[in-house]
Every structure is written in C-alpha cells, then in structure tokens.
Simulated scan of single mutants.
Amino acid sequence: MKNWKATGIKWTLAASMAVTAILPLTYSAPSTYAADAVVSKVEVVKRLPMVQVIATGGTIAGQSVDETSFTKYRSGTLLVEDMVAALPNKDQIADVSSYQFGNSGSSAYTIEQLYDLSKAVDEALKTQDGVVVTTGTDTMEEIAYFLDLTVRSPKPVVITGSMRPWTVIGSDAQANLYNAIKLAASGKTKYFGTVLMLNDEFHAAREVTKANSYRTDTFVSPGVGSLGHIDGDMIRVYRAPFRAMKYGGQWATPFDLNKIGKEELAKVEIAYSYQDAGAGAISGFAKAGADGIVTAGTGAGGISRAMSEERKQAIEEGVIFVSTTRTGSGSNYSSGEGIIGGDNLNPAHARIMLLLSLSFSENFDTIKGWFETYGYGQVEARK
C-alpha cells in the first residue's frame, strides 16, 4: 500500500474514518496488516482558535517604579506585542495576534475614540474567532457596555485589565490577560455580547461595575452576580445574559455605527443628587448643549426640589432624562414626560444607553422603547 505521508498528502480525520470504514468488521487484523500502516500515518489537524488582543493601555500595561511599587506606576506604557510575547503556554490555547489601538488610561478616551474601537473590534472579528480588549479599569464598565451595544458580530468579545501593573510582584495582569484569551478562545461566550473578565470571574457588560479602588476583586454585578468563572482549564458558565436567552444569540441592537458618523454621536451628562442639591448641574449641562441627562438620584431615584424644577425647564427645551439611583444597586421606575426610568442600569451604564439612543433617534417614544427592550434586559416567561 502507498506510503501516503511520503507523497506529501496530509490526511484529515474524515480520511481516517473512511479507511476505518472499509476494514472488515469481523476480522481481527494482525499488527502487520497493511491498513494499520495507513491508519498509523493519519495526521489529525486541529486548528487553534484565532484570538486578537486589542490594547488601549491602562494599569495592565503599566510600568511600576520598582517591583514592589503597587500604587506608583505609569499606566499605558508597555506595548501589547511584548506583553503577549511574555505569556507562557499561550500557543496551547489560541493562535494569538495583537493590535495596539492606543496606550492611555481608560478615562482619557473620548466617545469618538470608543466609536473607532468598536469598529476595530468588528473588523477583527471578520477573521478572528474572538477578541480580547485590554483597558484601564476606571471606566472599563462603560467601555465594555459601549462595545456590548455596538459590536455587530456575535463572536466572543472579552474585555480585561488589571488592578496591579504588569511589572510588580504578585501582579494580576498576566493571569487576567491569559484567562481572557482562554475565555475568548473557548467560544463559551459567543452570543453573550461583551463580557468583562478579571480575577478569574466574568460578568455581563450591562450589569458589572467597579466597586473598589484597589482590590483585585473590584468588579461585581450587584443583585445578579457573575456569569461564571475560570479555574485552570475549567471554564464554568452558570447563567446567560438576556441577549443570549431572549433572542437565541441573534440579537443585534439598532446601534449600527456604520450608519452614523462620529460627529453624530450625542452628548449626555450625569447629574448627581444629594441633600439640598442645587440646580446648577442640570442648568449648566443643558446650556452647554447636552442632548440628554441621567440623574443619579437618592434612594429610588429621588432628586432635590431645585433639581426637579430645573429638570422641568430642560425637558421643555428638548432634553431627555433617564432616572437612576446612586445607591449602587436596585431598580428605578420613575418616569413621566421627558423622563425614562433607568430600571437597574447604574448611572454610567444608563448614560451609554441614552447616548447611543439619542445618536440614532430624537423621538422620545422610540428611545423609551429601546430602553424597555435592549436596555432593561429583563427575561420574560414564554407564553
């Protein structure tokens, strides 16, 4: 029989099965049987998932003063190419490439730059099986939710970073980047939208928030918890976000950035309420040209009398409001003329949702409808 390997022909798993199928099922072939020689030379080719790391900087790319300077470092210093190259055993989980989108702290990025980042993610997903985005943690939840609402591809998008710079002892940076690549390569979060992965846990972008300024377990999803966690080779998913459950993974929001230019992105601000809060924040934002304002209210969304009066005036001038709570968790149902209840979206997330909504429509009822479907994320029982 021909020595197929010598001819340069690489067998696939399907070819192996074809050879096996023609062997007599009732015959126990000796080890010298010719078919054994063929089967022994079958080469099963398994392609590793392709994952691109798109870097924007942050603490994960930080250079510390020395190896024990946990809080003294310059973020957004190291290049992602060097960081990826330093990861051990990555070739066992994925075929990893990298792209340096930027190298700054997360709060330095403008909404227009997030527009470009989202389009870069979608462009990468045309050829990649998953994308990892590295950012600073300060506004990571906002960047994640922007991507969650705008990226068109259903493939995995994982955003990660670290609470300690890359160059200190005990840094979480290397483990977070490695696990984010592993999660993206696994395909387990396909149709989940953007997920945030730090500290061996991953969360839905809509629900996650930063809860501590220094601790490595800073990210939490109040009231609902994480989607799952990673323990070595074990990736466990214990629940799915609304978008995967409600629409069978085929959910795409109306916020297709290919249909608008960066100059059409709306301007939305957040006004924080407190005891006897003045009207200046709302009046100032309205005069500065805000298209929408999110109020971070006390309790279930309450705002001071002065803020309430100023809100009425701003609504008459065409500003749309979303009411949320400053408490850190819980729902808000306050609505009315010009006001949309933010449900359990925190103020930062509600701002991203309102900003994108106003970028695609000026109609209050349309925007309210988008909040009630794409924004609220509630799961309804099938009838």
Rank of each mutant, 00 (worst) to 15 (best):
M197C: 07
Q63V: 13
P254W: 05
F202H: 14
A286C: 09
G297Q: 12
T135L: 02
V65I: 08
G336L: 04
D95Q: 06
V51Y: 09
R74L: 08
G375E: 00
V379T: 04
V80Q: 14
D217H: 03
I320M: 12
T32Y: 11
M245F: 14
G161L: 00
A120I: 03
S361I: 11
G301I: 00
S28A: 09
S334C: 02
N332Y: 00
P154K: 05
V51T: 05
K287W: 09
L198R: 13
A314F: 01
P347G: 13
V237Y: 15
G292R: 02
P254V: 01
G170E: 11
V19G: 13
T26P: 01
M163N: 13
W370V: 00
F360W: 04
S118K: 12
S357R: 01
V42P: 03
V132M: 00
E380M: 07
E43I: 00
T327W: 10
P347F: 10
I340N: 06
G187P: 06
V322M: 05
Q250A: 15
K119V: 13
E380K: 03
P156D: 14
F360L: 01
T218H: 06
Y33L: 08
T160C: 11
P222Y: 11
G225K: 14
I181M: 01
A173F: 06
G330M: 02
M50D: 05
D231M: 05
T366F: 02
A6E: 15
S40I: 00
M140F: 02
S329K: 07
G102H: 06
K188R: 12
L183D: 07
D36P: 01
S359L: 08
L354F: 00
T110Y: 08
N363L: 03
G76Y: 10
A350F: 15
T137F: 11
L345Q: 04
K5H: 13
T68F: 10
A288M: 13
G170S: 04
I60D: 11
E269R: 07
V322K: 11
K182D: 03
N103E: 13
N258Q: 10
E43G: 07
N103G: 13
K119H: 12
I143W: 04
V51Q: 03
A350T: 15
I159E: 13
T59K: 11
K312S: 06
S334A: 08
R206K: 09
T218W: 04
I230Y: 07
G278L: 05
L227I: 00
K2Q: 12
K182A: 09
A314K: 06
R311Y: 02
T26Y: 11
L125R: 12
E310T: 10
G284H: 04
I320P: 03
